[in-house]
Structure formats: C-alpha cells, structure tokens
Design a protein around this nucleic acid. Structure first.
Length: 520
RNA sequence: CGGGGAGUAGCGCAGCCUGGUAGCGCAUCUGCUUUGGGAGCAGAGGGUCGCAAGUUCGAAUCUUGUCUCCCCGACCA
C-alpha cells in the first residue's frame, strides 16, 4: 500500500450533467441553472428570464446600431396579418401554411360549465394569422410607399416577435414564439438587391464573430433549403460543441416574386413601370442558443464580455458582523472606479451583488450564468487594498481548485479592460480552433461520407465536399441520400477555395464546395 | 403529428404494481459553532401529488380524458 499516492484532485463541476455524457440534457441544464429561460405552460413558448433577456438586449443594441449604420430605419408592423395578404405568394404559402396560428374570433362567452369559449356569434369575417414573418404586410406597405425610382432603395427593419407552430421545440433553438429582427428592402434592380442581401449577410458574419465570439461560415444555401419564395438564400452557419451545425442568421434575395404579389412597382427614369427587387434578412433569439452551445462548459454558460449584461460581478464576502460596512464601502469604491472605464468600445458593466447570502453560493450561481469576471472581496482584501479575481473562461487550476488570482486593486483596475478583451478574444479563438479541428475534407465518395458519419462517432463535425450543384430531381435524390444519414447540406462558403475534382453524388465535375453536417 | 418516456416542495428523486390521507437528498429559514474559498451540528418551514372526470367508505396510487415537458421519427426561413 503506497500511502503517498494521492488520488488526483477531482474537479467538482457546477453542473450535474457533462456535455460529453448527454449534450441535450446538458443544454437544458445550462438554460435552467444559468437562469436564462423557463417553461411557460404554453406549448413551445418560453419565459425569458432577466439574464437571458439581458443578453438579448445586448444583441439588440449592437445589431440595431449596425442596421442603422447601413441606412435602414426601424418601424413596426402589426402582429396580425389578414389571411388574404398571406395567400398572395404561392411558394410562401406552401412553406408556412402548416405552422400557422390563426385568430378566428374576437369575443369570449361563458361555456355554461364554468369556463369560457369563443363566442360563435363573434367569428371574424376574415381570419387573421399571427405573423410567422412579415414579407406580406411589409410588401403591402411598400407597394404604397414606392412610386418612383427616387423612392428606392426602401429599407426598413423591425424588432418583433413571430409565431410558427412548431412540432418539436427546444429552448432558444426552436420555439413556437421567438424574438427577432427582420429587415426588408426594395431595390430598383437585381444587382442592388443582391448587394444588400450580401451586405446583411456580412453584417451577421461580423456580428457573430466579433460580438458573439462565434465562428461562422457565411455562404449560400442549396436550392432545397431556400426560404419559401426566395430566389437565393444565404446563411451563417456555426458549429456547436456536439459537432452539429446551427443556422444562426439568414439573408434572402427575393427577386421580384414578392413585389409582384404585393404590387411593389415604380416608374423608372425612362418612364416604364418596373417591379422592385426585394430582400429580407433576420437573426433571432436562436443566436442565444448558439452562444450557449458554442461557449458553454461543464460549469454552465460562458458569456462573451461583449454581450454579458454584467461583465464584472463584485461579490463581497459578507459575514454579517461589524466588518461588513467597511467591506461594502470598499466594494462600492471599486465599482465606481470600474464604471469610469471602457472595454470593447463601451463603458464597463459592473454589478455589486450585495444581496445577503454566502459569497460562495452566489459565486457558483454567477459561474453557471457565465459572468465573465467574478471579483470576490473579503475583509482582508479591503484592509490591504487587494482583490481576488476569477475569469470565467478559466476557472480551474491544475490542483482542481478555483483559479482566483489575488492582486492589488490598482493592478486589477489597470488591467481590467485588457482582461475583458482577452476573454472575448480567447473565447473566439477557442471556438475557432474547435471548429477547424472538426471540419473534414478530402472525402470523395458517398460511402466514405456514410462511414464518416457512422453511429459510433458521436461528434463527427462537418464535412466539406465537392459539389456539382445538381438541381431538380438530381438534387432531390442527393437530399434523400443525405437524409438517410441524417445529414443536410449547410451552405457553400462565399470565400471557399475553387473546387477541383468530381462531385461525390453525381460524378460530374465539381463547381463549388459544400458543407454537409447534422444540424439543429 | 406518429412511437416511447415523464409530470409528487425551488432543484433532483422515492412512494404507485399490492388504494388507508406524503417522504428523502440538496436548497431555504432559525440557533449555536465555524470563517479566505462550493462549512458543521441541531431544529424548523414549505406540497390542492400537472389538470379534470370516473371507480371507491377512502385515490399520489386504479380507469378515462386533457395539458405540458423530454427522447426518436416526420416536419422545420
């Protein structure tokens, strides 16, 4: 018996489920333990709690500025859309009809059993649908607003909720009601509309990378994955830690189909009546799910500083004795000092958490929520002008203890902006490395693809394949083959290297490359 | 929407088969001790057992319906 052999110290994680053991259960635990959202009692709808909504507000604030910067104005269109508006664009109807919430009555009466029921006398002449997206109503408005070439381009955006009656829902990733931003623009010609479509896509790519620290591939979706009614659909695709792809934002060139359905026409310089070319683009609360699955670890969420509602949590180690007053005063001084600083281009956001309770308990709550920096400050720190700082992205030391760094208050304050920026950059680097390590190239046959995605490989990641861009029945066949493997075509990266060789599906010469993956 | 599983205290669960009026761990509250890193001991509070009907003297437990959640499938800008 060797008494000197010690068991390696065991890290005691804040969550009870590890990503590795059950990714789906882990995700749910992060959402609930991180106090992001909870069940609402209504199928597929969630209550977004302050921490989750705070993240959404950060996303809104930064994205809204980028949208306005591009010359797009905000406005608001109604939640209810007359059925007849919606029916105008055939492909659009085809795509959405199956998941529509419909309003048919405008009054309730007693049902005679102590409850209420819609009054049969109060049936709406024309049912209203709850918007699943607003192309149709906004198109109707644009038809009124656009007369001449001088009115173009017309560019509007709205922040709104939309409803799609989903059969299978997951918090943030696919909910029946979700929050989003939808930009809608009308242009004189295809080139201008396409330019706007790609501008929006680039805005999303840059936002995902720089703000969410989430690496993405910006590219064009294959024909079968297009938005109903679109001529071309583009997306940003992110890789989650289980290797699945998440479509985190889309931008569509809609051609003249919606303009024709809604009657968006303008008189050109030459005096002819022309159809406008329209676009639409959006990102939603789904992005938050992407952040969770990109950055989360076995201790909960890790929120990138750029979107953290509070970037620094000051946790006084209160002892409910005479020392507390001086300790709180010291913490308050530090808070004020930090509030004067900026990081990542904005004033630093600090919370002094002085709720009663043990600092250790509160600490783990903030770890699970993923606050970027936790400052625990005790009486001895206060007396000596010190702080103890924990950066959320690296909370464990080699010896399995929490990685608090004691330092002087001056030193911490002087370095805190750089520290926040380093956390932001470090999360991005870590995620990018993880993604790049999980993209496989060079498979040339469908059999190799099937082998690669065999059941025993839990997190296979993405595969980049040559692609001859088949259409119609030929594409349909490929989609079926991939479906049998639970795979989908994600997109063709805009910045991909030129393709060479043969398409593994058709045997024809490749014209581009596609990413194939399991997806959310 | 099809197949499967589940809903009992804030969280995680036992009890259900074989009906008898609800329990455990963590969390919470109080007290004492402890005090620089997820404290210990003692005590306490908290639940119309998802909801609704039915069977029964009696239902968390049996039956039916319904709502919600999870997994698989279909579907999914």
């Amino acid at each position: 018996m060797n008494q000197k052999t010690q068991k390696p110290a065991q890290i005691r994680h804040a969550l009870t489920v590890k990503r590795e053991d059950d990714f789906a259960a882990w995700y749910q635990q992060v959402v609930s333990e991180g106090e992001m959202a909870e069940e609402s009692g209504v199928r597929g709808c969630m209550v977004i709690k302050p921490w989750g909504y705070g993240i959404w507000e950060r996303i809104q604030k930064i994205m809204d500025a980028a949208i306005k910067e591009a010359g797009v104005d905000n406005c608001y269109f109604p939640l209810f859309i007359p059925l007849s508006y919606f029916a105008k664009e055939a492909d659009h109807v085809e795509g959405f009809a199956k998941e529509m919430a419909v309003v048919t009555h405008h009054r309730l009466i007693a049902d005679g059993k102590g409850g209420l029921m819609p009054d049969p006398e109060a049936r709406l002449e024309e049912p209203l649908i709850v918007r699943p997206t607003s192309e149709t109503v906004i198109g109707a408005a644009m038809a009124r607003w656009v007369q001449s070439w001088r009115d173009l381009p017309l560019m509007v955006n709205q922040w709104a909720n939309v409803v799609r009656w989903e059969m299978r829902t997951r918090m943030f990733l696919r909910t029946s009601e979700f929050l989003w931003q939808e930009g809608h623009t009308a242009h004189a010609d295809r080139d201008d509309a396409m330019k706007e479509t790609l501008r929006a896509l680039e805005m999303y790519r840059s936002f995902a990378e720089n703000v969410l620290a989430m690496p993405v591939v910006a590219g064009e979706k294959p024909e079968n994955e297009r938005f109903p009614g679109a001529v071309a659909t583009y997306s940003i695709e992110a890789m989650m830690q289980d290797g699945k792809a998440l479509q985190a934002g889309t931008s569509h060139y809609l051609g003249t189909g919606f303009a024709e359905a809604a009657g968006i026409r303008y008189q050109s310089k030459e005096g002819a009546q022309e159809l406008a070319h329209t676009t639409s683009w959006g990102v939603s609360t789904r992005m938050i799910g992407g952040v969770i699955m990109t950055h989360g670890d076995d201790d909960g969420l890790r929120v990138p500083p750029a979107i953290a509602p509070h970037q620094i949590i000051i946790l006084p180690m209160l002892r409910e004795d005479d020392g507390d007053e001086a300790l709180l005063a010291y913490c308050e001084e530090i808070r004020r000092e930090l509030l004067k600083l900026s990081a990542l281009g904005e004033p630093i956001r600090v919370l002094l958490d002085k709720r009663p309770g043990k600092a250790t308990q509160k600490r783990w709550a903030w770890v699970k929520k993923g606050a970027p920096i936790i400052l625990e400050i005790g009486g001895r720190d206060a007396a000596g002008g010190m702080v103890s700082a924990l950066r959320r992205d690296r909370i464990w030391r080699e010896d399995a203890k929490t990685n608090f760094v004691g330092q002087s208050r001056e030193e911490f304050v002087a370095g805190v902006a750089a520290l926040l920026e380093d956390i932001q950059a470090s999360l991005h680097r870590e995620a990018t490395e993880k993604r790049d390590a999980n993209i496989t190239r060079g498979l040339t046959t469908l059999d190799q693809v099937a082998e690669f995605f065999a059941e025993d490989k839990r997190y296979p990641g993405w595969v980049e394949l040559n692609w001859s861009r088949p259409t119609g029945d030929a594409l349909e066949k490929v989609v079926e083959q991939l479906k049998a493997l639970k795979l989908t075509i994600r997109n063709t990266a805009l910045d991909a290297a030129p393709a060479e060789g043969l398409c593994p599906f058709t045997g024809e010469a490749a014209v581009e490359r596609i990413y194939v993956a399991r997806a959310y």
